[in-house]
Design a protein around this nucleic acid. Sequence first.
DNA 1: ATGGTTGATCCTCAA
Length: 261
Amino acid sequence: MRVATWNVNSIRSRIERVIPWLQRNDVDVLAIQETKTREDQFPFFRFEEIGYEVAHHGLNQWNGVAIASRVGLSDVTAGFADAPVWGQAPVPEARHLGASCGGIRINSVYVPNGRQLLDPHMDYKVEWLARLRDAAQGWLAQGPTMVMGDWNIAPQDEDVWSMEFYADKSHVSPRERAAFAAMLDAGYVDVVRPLLPGPKVYTYWDYQQLRFQKGRGMKIDFILASPDVAGRVAAAAIDREERKGKGASDHAPVVVDVADA
DNA sequence: ATGGTTGATCCTCAA
């Protein structure tokens, strides 16, 4: 089974890339982040007409997560237990969607952007990750599980094009890295890093300042799996080609092949 | 020149 994750930065503006990409790459399950659309505007039919079921959780023009699958899609859940809410008048954000696909519990996650080290958004991000860890630890007992998406964290120095540049910025701080490490401590395995070791292996390149053309990216999109699933991962890829050209997302898709149980 | 782009929506915010 081929499983992928992709922050598409608006499903409506990216649909003409996403649909051919799914078909061309023979992908069975795709976890999508940043759909940036309400439910009623999601292009469900474009997936259904090529043989995928799709579940989406989107509340407004921000965030939004989805899962498309051609190997079954059941028991869909939006949001996890005790997920923090953002704001003075707290509103839940669409940052997590779970579904069972092909015998694996798939979780599409869009981790909050902390913005800056002392910004309230950073506290929200760290708290959100702590609650995700708690929930995800429980999922391990329930069977084969994958948690994948845009983590907005570069766990290692080699995951950014310049530590000097990021020294005082979000994504590399000890708090964020500890929050990511807690997922691994809980028992999850990063199934891509061992197969695609760095340095200079990135999944995201800022639109500004010709970052992609200059090779200045970040590795912030990860596929984590329960140990049983991790043992079945036979191959991994980051599709840099999808970052090229007009109309690209600022993130590349990340893909793994999972052998049958 | 202290920015540089992109997207959704509204004339600004988010990344």
